[in-house]
Design a protein around this nucleic acid. Structure first.
Lengths: 341, 341
DNA sequence: GTTTGCGATGTTAGCGCTAACATAATGTTA
DNA sequence: TAACATTATGTTAGCGCTAACATCGCAAAC
């Protein structure tokens, strides 16, 4: 007679035994207390407490052929932009029956593919992935996933399933248009960690400058290094050294913009008169800076919340109104680009 | 004859069938390819690819009575301090066989308790929780968890199991000592989101000031509102208005310190001569700021990495050298407290 | 008093995988 | 050549839970 050991922890059968009922009654009492009479429910709850019983979610997932897991994959944990969307997702799902499972792809598509594979192994109730730049295999895996999939932080005509975000191209364009309108002449781009979204911002920016007759390819400075405030300060110094005539710069994110501000201050340049600065995302600090920093405001929290709403509507059997949601952006003009013309 | 539907996805049996082997051989080929001959392994891999088979991790967890889940609970997703430790944890566990499951307690102990309960339902391989301020019930749950538990971001004599971090009391004290030594006379404390760790910093700070004969309870300004750069700017303005004689301030974190810098600049105060500023954690931006900001440097990434190492050593059957690891901190003196005395 | 309906509870058979043992196929040694 | 390792693969019985059907008790309806 061979026997397997199990984990030694109390099982639903132990609870049923102690309460003098069948296992299914315990199962029901825990999942939907209304299905069980007061009398038994009380006995069961007592037994649960006495045995310190914790339901085994894997067994439950297996038996019910559905897990309560929501898989979320973002490219960075330290980038505040994703943290805000994540917070929205955790706020919305954290309370209820769902478990959020988070993956960090570190901006590496192959890593993302691996994570998608792992996550699908848990037969998640839904998946949320950042961006639209998945590998073909990742896309195919998600298309076959048999669960709602939401891409966030971007928009596009051809989502895997659903998508909510904004147009990085248009955001970059708005930044360019603004700098041209402010009368800046030699307008540069400063971009670190040039991920696909940053490239789209750059494309929109280029278009705006070309239209305004201010495009100069020599004023595009990019690197694949992670963005940071220090890097922004460093690069703007190099940039100004190489092109002392530079009079405005669009940074691909706010960390770089804040760094550019500090770098210019160190060099004795006055913002916005010597150099105008505009960032992207409008993190909270931008308004507080001195001088305050112009940025393209995006609502990352709303994106996360929206993604959750779309998922919940699909999971509850409804058809979502729209599969493609563009939440847009808003130019926040502040001191750093408000010079006397 | 009743039948359950299953999820419709290919199972290990489908793969076995297609490859003409038994299920256990497939199981072995996928878990430890070396256990299976080249010949069969190739056939199995082909079948896996053709069927798009993804192993069902719940079934695996149930059958093997162990899951590959590492539960991690932090109080905030947007606070960069935790993000750094998380990144270390994901870097270390993300590659291998483990899955990180993240929870956000939002600084609410009851929420943390709920999360611990949920996580233990997955029979995790290990748990990592932030801080030492769990409820009694949470503590007890974790003590009975039958898996390694690491508390991070703090130290203490009485860990649930293991702990790695640094002393917030000593950190606060070092900040206080530094300001006294620099010759500042009316030294204040500016604290937002006063969580237990911030209180310990404040206590250390108080002790330093008392010892230096500079303690004035009227110069302690705290709020439970979330910390942010804007809030730092706002509060320092109020603080200076109420106590124009304030000549130095210890902020309970770097966001507040950066905000204080901006607030002072707006008010036309010169840093460090009119007011000295010191932050806590030494986020990357502190060195880049203009003037650069003094802070207490803590190595959050190392804390996360260390926690993972402790767990891995326990999981591989070793006994870790130490159950309590103090990684310390380091005072980073910069321009914001370096005045001509 | 029998029938019908309905809510509460029970019985049974899996969900998809792997531990534990069993066996077949091959090499190794005296 | 027999006895014995050693390795590769298979068989069987669960892991702990819940879907699907079965039954029971009781009240309302006929």
């Amino acid at each position: 007679m061979r026997k397997r050991k199990g984990a030694g922890r109390p099982t639903i059968a132990d609870v049923a035994n102690k309460a003098g009922v069948s296992t299914i009654t315990v199962s029901r009492a825990l999942r939907d207390p209304a299905m069980v009479s007061d009398h038994l429910r009380r006995k069961i709850n007592n037994a649960v407490r006495k045995l310190n019983y914790v339901p085994h979610s894997h067994a439950s997932a297996l038996a019910s052929t559905r897990s309560n897991i929501i898989g979320v994959i973002v490219p960075s944990l330290t980038n505040n932009v994703f943290a805000e969307s994540l917070r929205a997702i955790y706020d919305a799902f954290g309370q209820g029956a769902f478990q959020v499972q988070l993956g960090n792809s570190r901006y590496v598509p192959a890593e993302e593919e691996r994570l998608v594979r792992t996550f699908l192994g848990q037969r998640p109730s839904a998946m949320i992935v950042a961006g639209t730049d998945q590998t073909d295999v990742t896309r195919q895996l998600l298309e076959n996933a048999e669960c709602p999939v939401v891409q966030i932080m971007d928009v596009g005509d051809d989502p895997i399933d659903m998508i909510v975000g904004f147009s990085h191209f248009e955001g970059g364009k708005a930044a360019g248009v603004h700098l041209v309108q402010q009368g800046y002449k030699r307008i540069g781009f400063l971009g670190a960690r040039m991920d696909p979204r940053s490239y789209r911002r750059l494309e929109g920016f280029k278009e705006a400058l070309q239209f305004g007759g201010r495009y100069d390819p020599d004023l595009i400075m990019t690197t694949t290094v992670s963005s940071s405030v220090s890097l922004g300060a460093e690069l703007i110094a190099q940039f100004c050294a190489r092109r002392p005539d530079l009079d405005a710069v669009f940074c691909n994110n706010d960390d770089m913009a804040l760094g550019a501000l500090f770098g210019c201050q160190k060099a004795g340049l006055s913002i916005p008169d010597d150099i105008g600065i505009i960032g992207f995302n409008d993190l909270e600090m931008m308004a507080a800076a001195h001088p305050s920093l112009t940025s393209i405001r995006t609502d990352r929290y709303a994106i996360g919340r929206h993604a959750v709403e779309m998922i919940q509507s699909v999971l509850s059997g409804e058809t979502p109104d729209k599969k493609i949601v563009d939440l847009g952006f808003e130019l926040q003009v502040r001191q750093s680009t408000s010079r006397a013309k």
